[in-house]
Amino acid sequence: MESLAIYVPRLVTIKEYFAPGHRACMGCGEALAVRLVCKALGRNIIIANATGCMEIVSSPLPSTSWEVPWIHTLFENTAAVASGIEAGIKILTRKGKYNNKTKVVAMAGDGGTADIGFQALSGALERGHDFIYICFDNEAYMNTGIQRSSSTPFGASTTTSPAGKVSIGQTTWKKDLPAIAVAHGIPYVATACHSYPFDLMNKINKAVEVNGPSYIHILSVCPTGWRLASDLTIRAGRLAVETGIFPIYEVEGDRYTLNLDFPKLRPIEDYFKLQGRFRHLSKETISQIQERVAAKYSKLKERAARNNYQQ
């Protein structure tokens, strides 16, 4: 477990690049994740942001929460816009018309990444642009009112996968985006969560140093959509990790590292019981999910152990 027994302001920059005055819900995990990401990125970046909560809460004309150059265009094209920015910087640098070593960053939610922006993401990763793609995963379309996405976990009740008399809510398993990113053969893939801020910021720093595409998948707790109290955001993120539901790992080339490992995972009920979206689940369904979580986690653990063995 990450140690937080330190004097934080000495370890992170005091500078905020995602300014207060944004209109995110109280206790928004995604806003916190964006704030931490921006701290780690620093000033020499350009952000392309997909349509979604973070875009809406940060940029009602004529005001902006962004202290760094930032562009929003559409929902599904963020990776393509980032590709263009990266290519534009390259040629302008070559011609002596651009003088910063700027890192290009694409930001999108899980809908903008796993569903509607999937093709553009795959294209940009395959083409090998030097950029970081960050998916802020709050596990549904929160901006439009909590509709299911392909990143919504099995059993979660959303407004378009509602739990009902004959339904348990979402009946499909969460799409494994980090694995899909890995399949593109890109240099760096990582998962992170705002509840482990130093791990998150380290990974951003690492991605900045990578030459080529990096993909970072950040679990971002949404108190509104997950139906939990606004002060439980950090705790919920921690429980997602401690139960093995959202493992924190990174993949460098084909080398897997489980950054936070637990000798014994907590039962998933600990995580589920905090949240209204899972409240309807039966014992049977929970144990079905528990089995799947355990299997996936041990597979990941084996994969990471194999690296160590090879070493």
């Binding site: 300014a19 207060p20 005055g21 944004h22 209109r23 109280m26 940060s58 940029s59 004309l61 004529p62 005001s63 902006t64 929460s65 962004w66 202290e67 760094v68």
Partner: peptide
């Protein structure tokens, strides 16, 4: 408005009070 409604004042949302929400 600037062309394309570009906002040149970085972080000007700082003027917006969200403290009223609590």
């Amino acid at each position: 408005l600037l062309p394309g409604s570009v906002i040149p004042e970085a972080g000007n949302a700082k003027q917006y009070r969200t403290g009223d929400w609590k």
